[in-house]
Design a protein around this nucleic acid. Structure first.
Lengths: 358, 358
DNA sequence: CTGAAAGCGCTTACAG
DNA sequence: CTGAAAGCGCTTACAG
């Protein structure tokens, strides 16, 4: 019956049975074999509770037997929902981010979202680009880091009407939910702690603040707290790097050129602190006897070095969990929080102590 | 003209001008404003070279002005292509994987694919699940780690007709392209090197081989090479862990209970090696004078410790780059390689030397 | 080079 | 609880 086949192909295929040579495929085949409408199959898959027990079982059997996997594109096109959340992080392997990502993926899975990750390398253009691609490809929401972006980027996000949250920053005046520590406050506490030990001469190996409002806030926090105590870091005792041990070492060699030497050195992140401590030991500068050193972000290594390093620990897994919950709520149009200040604490280890007397 | 509106809505909307209150939106609106067909707009976006200069410019202006972003779901549904490659890694922050991921994302972007990442925590069920979700959501291809999977998983992949590559393993007999180092061979070389220094008593802090055929191959490589030299590791000198400094420390304490002490200790990965070296220094065991220690996978830290650690360095960025190229070729139905053996080398540092004489 | 129109595989009001 | 059918927003033979 070639003529019949033609017609099947040309008009909408309405046959219930699939005896022809053209396999139906997909949901329609499932419906045909189960002897139900495509609507019913769809309901069984998406809202099984709305379907009678008998039909549900029949359809589920056929689905299993055929190994049918719904076509996500078709589903997304008709439901206007992809089930995916995109997240763009500056880096995936840095301590804080890695912990947040792990927690976020699990939390999103519980809400039945798939997490799609990309890394932007602290490159604003690349981030914008990735966001465009993700939106274009189809994500229901976005998890971003920081709250500072170009106007074009902001406009794009609002024009695309895509929900998003800002992470690793906290700001209760922001338009979008911010979920993160109070970066400035965390550093102020750290400075207060050092001042309470008696330190007056500070140095800093800062993390570059380019495309990084968290680092900028932390730097500002240091400045504020010192000013509150009537202190300041002399220009020659501030250097700037990114995030590697090697850099920490190199910059530490610059720091020790200052005379008088700072008694306390604040490092902008964990790797810079590790580098500084390792270089100090190589130079025979005893830590903390000659100098106290602190970092930011707690990675395992900091606790394991011969001189464990005092640092700020952010509950990054909580950042990930709350971000997941919030973006899922936004997408599901459920009530959601306006933001959350994630706690951070100072982990005191052996790299800090009273200043030397000289 | 409410009746007109009704009709616009009920029948297919064919009006060229968009004066009604219902905005057209999307590609159709672009077409209407530019005064061309939707086919032309689609061509301008996807294959601009097939469209005349004049029309192309006109359409591009409208696209820019409207800020139109194509709907990925619709595009995927009609073109049967999503433009995304999914990658599932056991972890995203481990040295080798992190480097591969970075290189892969960039290489895929050049081929106009978006990389979507997920991490499986060395959990076979979770990985299968993530693969299902990715396929269901829509990816054109998959990058996986290792070559061992359950039959169900294999069947799913072939049934879904989704191209994929295996990474961090090399096997020229495998059905799918394998792109990675020869794990066994790498370890054999490392053992040969240690033997050439004169070592005869070995210990091992192995990485668990559960859901990890790379670790299994490396362990087998150690066994093979030792056997070739008529050597073997006594059971009490083999312990097993995952990948943390803390574990490396703890397991090292088990290793040093053996009598006689091994003169050379092989660690299954970088963090275990770091832990071992740090613990040795804490126990006052001089490295390499009392014991040589080696690791696998070269992370920055290994070069920066007081005693830099000899290890195997895999060109992981090359793994990422070649994997990207291969999966893109597969998806684009271009000629592709059958696999590639990625080079690895032994990086000799201060943690290895001649065995002690006792 | 360009357009008219079918169709990709689902979901979802709507009606019963 | 279930089904018939429209429609989601693109791409792509096909025809000119």
């Amino acid at each position: 019956m070639p003529a019949g086949d033609r017609e099947l192909k040309a008009t909408k295929n309405r046959s219930i049975k699939t005896d022809g040579e053209k396999p139906l495929g997909g949901l329609r085949q499932v419906a045909a074999i189960a002897g139900v409408s495509t609507a019913t199959v769809s309901r069984v898959v998406n809202r099984p509770e709305t379907v009678s027990e008998a039909l549900r079982k029949r359809v589920e059997m056929v689905v299993d037997q055929l190994g049918w996997i719904p076509n996500g594109a078709a589903r997304a096109l008709s439901s206007n929902r992809t089930g995916a959340i995109g997240a763009i992080f500056p880096a995936l392997a840095l301590g804080d981010f890695a912990r947040a990502i792990d927690a976020m993926q699990d939390a999103l899975a519980e809400r039945n979202f798939l997490l799609l990750l990309a890394r932007s390398q602290y490159d604003a253009d690349l981030e914008f680009n990735l966001a465009r691609k993700m939106v274009e490809r189809g994500v229901d929401g976005l998890v971003l880091v920081g709250k500072t972006r170009t106007e074009g980027y902001e406009q794009f996000l609002s024009k695309a009407e895509i929900p998003y949250v800002n992470t690793f920053v906290y700001d209760d005046t922001a338009k979008r939910p911010c979920i993160g520590p109070d970066n400035a406050q965390a550093m102020e506490s750290l400075v207060d702690y050092l001042v309470s030990l008696g330190h007056k001469r500070f140095g800093m190996i800062a993390q570059t603040t380019r495309n990084n409002d968290r680092a900028a806030a932390r730097r500002e926090g240091v400045r504020t707290a010192l000013a509150r105590h009537g202190l300041a870091i002399p220009p020659e005792s501030i250097v700037e790097g990114q995030w590697s041990i090697e850099e920490g070492r190199m910059l530490f060699r610059r720091i020790v050129k200052a005379d008088p030497l700072p008694t306390a050195l604040i490092c902008g992140n964990s790797l810079l602190a590790v580098g500084a401590v390792l270089e100090a030991s190589e130079l025979g500068i005893e830590i903390p006897k000659k100098m106290s050193i602190v970092g930011y972000d707690d990675i395992e290594l900091m606790a394991e070095l011969p001189v464990p390093i005092t640092t700020v620990r952010v509950a990054s897994d909580e950042v990930g969990r709350v971000a997941a919950r919030t973006i899922a709520d936004l997408v599901d149009r459920k009530p959601h929080i306006a933001g959350e200040r994630i706690p951070s604490e100072i982990i005191i280890r052996a790299s800090t102590g009273k200043p030397r007397e000289d």
